[in-house]
Amino acid sequence: MKGKQKKGMVRDYILLGLVFVIAILLITFFPDKKDEVINASWNFLVEMLWILPAVMILLGLFTVFVPKKTVVKYLGKASGIKGVSLAILFGALPTGPLYVAFPIAASLLKKGASISNIVIFLSAWACIKIPQEMVELQFLGAKFMFTRLALTIIFVVIMGIFIEKLIAKEEDVSLIPTKCP
């Protein structure tokens, strides 16, 4: 994993170099656009730097203070509305890219957590992260952020229940002979 991460970093820097060279070339050929480009980039950079350290600190805190074991322990047996709320909360609190959540989801599956909770947990992890919402708030405004957040929560819950029903139905049909004692 470490080597893979290093490779990713190298790839990012190569990409950055490439984008930088393209930008320099474009500005050299079209000098009248220079001010506009630099202004736009500068404004977004400043806006980003004002919040990035704070977002990273929150990300670090959540990672350390909400250990994965806790997530599995509580979500493994929770059900009903409590299960749904916990799935959203535990998805939204700890941080890291989505692939970090897959092993957690896999152990939840093994522990017998409901399919809907696992799907809701994964989706919350993917798109209801608190630090992420803060960046959304900064760049797209409160109205956009809160509307999208509310809609996302509603639809993610519906999706979780839908997928659970779908999988349960299929298993009823295909697994009856093996499932019955």
Binding site: D12, F20, A23, L26, F30, K33, A40, S41, W42
Partner: peptide
């Protein structure tokens, strides 16, 4: 930085 440069180019060009 990649995204910041792309944004500049996007808004400028």
């Amino acid at each position: 930085f990649i995204v910041i440069i792309i944004i500049g180019l996007l808004l400028g060009f």
